[in-house]
Simulated assay, not measured.
Amino acid sequence: MSTPTAQLAAAGVSIWLDDLSRQRIITGNLADLIATRNVTGVTTNPTIFAGALANGESYAGQVKVLAERGASTDEAIFEITTDDVRAASDVFQPVFAATDGVDGRVSIEVSPDLAHDTEATIAEAKKLAAAVDRPNALIKIPATKAGLPAITEVIGAGISVNVTLIFSLERYGEVIDAYLAGVEKAKAAGHDISTLQSVASFFVSRVDTEVDKRLAAIGTPEAKALTSKAGIANARLAYELFEQRFADDRAKELLAAGATVQRPLWASTGVKDPNLPDTLYVTELVAPGTVNTMPEKTLQATFDHGVLEGDTITGNYADAHAVFDQLAAVGVDFADVTQVLEDEGVEKFIASWHELQETVSTALKSSLQGDA
């Protein structure tokens, strides 16, 4: 009897863990999740690293060495996080080889402080890629207006990219354009475009959180009936756009030359409303060639009691469009929703980045004082 996570993988969904710590790597927990939970990749962000470092004795030795060397806070963060990503990339090397480079991927994010600075994002992405120096690393770049040209430039330099913080279909279309332009640039520069991989991270539960708040304020029976429907509908329409755009002439020409599609990735898939099934954003977003990056709690819930019913996306486009018509009819301004979410998403990652800086700065000082 196959497990729900095995069934999910068989349906064409790559399961990535939305968490990384040195403890997971050195205890063998990460390898165990690969072996028993069908995990084929890992994503990280500043919040994840802040949590890992705040609770991680496994970093003490390295922090001590960095402190004695006189490393700055940002230098220490760079070294610690790239070491973790390099080590995780090595753990995933067999998956990377077995999937011809599609999976076995580990993501690391450029500093969120650079989210509105194109040139600085490009420079840091290249620096991170060089420091990690693993073919299965993905550099995360946010899908802000300033991030779009950075995505093109970094992919054009032959670096694989995870585009994060996508909320709207309009922005997703621009992300696909940025990816295709990057592949064209890489091809012109003589890079092997068959080795370039990219995912487009579409956030799901955050959409429901914001929309449901607005529906509750509207308060009509029609509004309340739409509760918790926007996130899944939005993601399903993203997959529809993915299918359309990678079947057009521009994409087909690149695919024929060896390029790969930029896969949709479902992010923010932990359920925030306790009234909803805890596997909702997994079982309702199943389609071939997608990635679902899950917090461990969601991963374990899926393994334990997820009910998989095959493809739950491609036959539901009409229903998804209907949800958006109904949202507009009751007065939800979805363009405003997605702008608020993008702004909040960047702000939250910046706050987590500053928390990470504070954690590392304190650890560096404590380490030196411990020697005094």
Rank of each mutant, 00 (worst) to 15 (best):
I26L: 02
V63W: 08
E119D: 13
L341S: 04
A186I: 13
K213H: 06
A301F: 07
K145M: 14
E347R: 09
L226H: 01
E119W: 01
H354Y: 13
Y179Q: 07
S21I: 08
A318M: 05
L138N: 08
V110N: 11
T293I: 10
A120G: 09
V161Y: 10
P94E: 09
L180T: 04
N136S: 04
S107L: 05
K145G: 14
L280S: 09
T227W: 02
K127I: 00
G289V: 02
I155D: 12
G370H: 06
D343A: 10
K64N: 09
V163R: 07
V161E: 13
V65H: 03
V85S: 03
I77A: 09
G147R: 12
A115E: 08
S201Q: 08
D248N: 15
T43R: 01
V307Y: 00
D319A: 14
K64C: 02
M294P: 01
A247H: 12
V110Q: 11
A87K: 09
S366F: 06
V337D: 15
T338C: 08
A10K: 15
T73F: 05
M1A: 13
T144Q: 13
P264T: 04
L276H: 09
V132A: 03
V337R: 02
M294W: 07
T3K: 14
E170I: 02
Q262E: 12
F167G: 03
D133A: 04
T82V: 13
N45H: 06
E284C: 11
I122K: 10
S21G: 13
A329T: 09
A200K: 12
T152V: 09
D103I: 01
D273G: 08
T279C: 12
N29K: 11
V175I: 04
G331T: 12
F92A: 02
W353R: 15
L299S: 04
G101F: 11
G231F: 01
W353S: 15
I141M: 11
T36F: 05
P112W: 10
L66K: 10
E68N: 15
I48N: 02
T338S: 13
F49N: 07
G28W: 07
L53Q: 06
F324W: 07
V65W: 01
K272P: 05
L341T: 04
V154S: 06
G41M: 05
L114I: 09
A129K: 06
A123N: 11
T73P: 10
A322Y: 00
T73I: 12
D90W: 00
A10H: 09
T43W: 03
V307G: 00
D113R: 15
A131C: 10
G104F: 03
T209W: 00
S194E: 00
G370F: 01
V204I: 14
S352F: 04
S367V: 10
K229V: 01
A71D: 15
T338G: 05
V323G: 02
S168P: 07
V63A: 03
E109D: 11
A150T: 07
S72Q: 05
A125L: 05
V42R: 00
T36M: 05
D19W: 03
A230N: 03
D117M: 08
T40H: 11
V132E: 04
G190E: 02
A143E: 10
E210K: 02
